[in-house]
Design a binder for these strands. Structure first.
Lengths: 197, 197
DNA sequence: ACAGATAAGAAGTGACTTGTCACTTTCTAT
DNA sequence: ATAGAAAGTGACAAGTCACTTCTTATCTGT
């Protein structure tokens, strides 16, 4: 007989909810959307099938909630990493690239393409993605205030991110290619960030 | 009693094979990978389930063949479009962007992300994707021979394509954003293509 | 013309997958 | 302490999916 800590209803609820969302993101990362089934999720979370549908009325709702958590984790990640970063453009570029090649954005990108033919997902994705982009640009403005004075600064940062996004996506299809293109992008980005006017 | 034109076995075979592949690509484009089922494909193709599995031993084989056709259609498309193109960098950029925002590359990008967690698809994709990239760069070298003398020309073209790819992918997740970034990319690309040395 | 071969069709089969439901366990207010 | 609410369980219904099997139609060499 195991003695279990007594928890409030709220604690129980939040705990299994968190287990479900974490398991969902783990599934999406390891197996991809196609093989992320409710059965697999509840097994990983260690809860019953019924529990999942008590918390989320449908699989779509589960995915939607998982997406929100994913992006809030991403934003936290940026804040943590760039918090005590020296204003070194080259270093900042490398850190950003590390984020883009990490597992979380791969999930995000797969969801983008899935959303193309899934209106419900598209609706869930759009606001949180926009916020995410805006946050990244805001971070950049803080880190590089001189360059941020340039009229096209935001567009430049955006372009840099889009180029990274494309490189990451292409790698999944064609293997590890694009290193020369990445080098050019870095040179360009660093020059832009360090130029004052 | 309908009078049917008499066809050889080879013609019959090729015809239903073509119908199956076309229907598969139509499905992928309209419904996405998730909802591209063999049932849906055979209905669109107007053939039976048995016929599909006579031609392709598995769904994976069907997708694989469809991917090959997709990229060969893409390459044909480039050749047709760029064949009588004046060497105008701005115009070339716009045409390339039109390709990237077209339906065929959306299918390709979705497959890239699917391949991340699907080794069979990855193996089928890699060679044909590499060929596709190489073809595009080769076209660029022919169109802009002066700029092609630059040592980093290939990397530049590659980067330009990757940036477009990222912009397209992001649009599926966040709606129609990125126009300023696209403008910057165009200015940059045109300058690079028109510079002689 | 016809026997054998190839292609296509019709009708399954079994293995998932999402979502439900009747029931048990755990917590909370009185 | 206890009644009622909230959370969780696990078996199952209903439907879909990839793939098979058996039959029928069409073509080909002689």
């Amino acid at each position: 007989m195991v003695v279990l800590a007594r928890r409030t209803q709220r604690e129980r609820r939040d705990e299994t909810r968190a287990k479900l969302l974490d398991a969902t993101l783990a599934c999406l990362g390891e197996l991809g959307v196609a093989r992320t089934t409710t059965t697999e999720v509840v097994q990983r979370a260690g809860v019953s099938q019924g529990a999942l549908f008590k918390h989320f009325p449908s699989k779509a709702a589960l995915l939607s909630a998982a997406v929100e958590q994913l992006f809030s984790e991403l934003v936290e990640g940026y804040e943590g990493t760039f918090a005590q970063l020296p204003r070194d453009a080259s270093h900042a570029f490398d850190l950003l690239w590390a984020f883009f090649t990490g597992p979380k954005l791969a999930i995000a990108f797969e969801l983008y393409l899935t959303a193309r033919t899934d209106e419900a997902l598209q609706a869930a994705l759009e606001p949180v993605v926009r916020t995410h982009r805006a946050q990244l640009i805001a971070h950049a403005r803080v880190l590089f205030p001189e360059a941020a004075a340039k009229p096209e600064f935001d567009a430049w940062i955006d372009l840099m991110m889009m180029a990274m996004e494309g490189l990451v996506v292409e790698r999944f299809g064609a293997g590890d290619v694009g290193a020369p293109a990445l080098a050019v992008l870095k040179r360009l980005s660093v020059a832009m960030l360090e130029r004052r006017s």
